[in-house]
């Protein structure tokens, strides 16, 4: 990673699961001018900690500052700058029932997903895949006139 080149990075932040901890993390990004592309947070099972996955971008120098500044927050336990990671993102997408349902079903299956709900007017699918492939899915989905597409944000785990 070169010093001045902006690169997409995913970091995991392990924080104490307490009120306002999310605000502390996001306020740090806002206050110091760092970007957040996506952010997910949920409690870690059987612990009093939560796991945040933050997708961001910046130069190596900026990434170093982000990591160090996050570390300074009192409720932050650990910051992991992912190198060798598995990352996944979930997407929910809603299509009109009048579209080609079998196409939509095959499409979602191709991206590790499937149909999760069929109503009178709409069909909803879920897919979960690598962020790059998620972009492909969203491109491919366009021809079926999606009514709504909701991205879940990246979650990552070190290999």
């Amino acid at each position: 990673m070169q010093n001045n080149v902006n690169e997409r990075r995913v970091i995991s932040v392990i924080v104490k699961n307490e009120s306002s901890v999310l605000a502390r993390v996001t306020a740090l990004f806002a206050g110091r001018g760092y970007n957040i592309e996506s952010l997910t947070v949920a409690p870690i099972p059987n612990s009093d900690m939560s796991h945040m996955s933050i997708e961001t971008n910046g130069s190596a120098k900026v990434m170093e500052q982000i990591t160090k500044q996050l570390h300074k927050l009192i409720p932050v336990y650990k910051v992991i700058e992912h190198e060798e990671m598995i990352e996944k993102e979930m997407v929910l997408a809603k299509f009109p029932i009048a579209e080609n349902l079998s196409d939509i079903s095959v499409l979602s299956a191709a991206y590790n997903g499937g149909v999760v709900n069929v109503g009178k007017e709409m069909i909803i699918v879920m897919v979960a895949d690598e962020p790059k492939r998620i972009k492909h899915f969203i491109d491919a989905a366009q021809r079926y006139n999606p009514v709504e597409i909701i991205r879940g944000g990246v979650v990552a785990i070190e290999r």
């Binding site: 009120s19 306002s20 605000a23 306020a27 206050g31 009192i74």
Partner: peptide, 16 residues
Amino acid sequence: AVGISRPCTKHNFLVR
């Protein structure tokens, strides 16, 4: 108060 003082304190607490 904790919202306003977040960027200008080392840490802050709202006692619950």
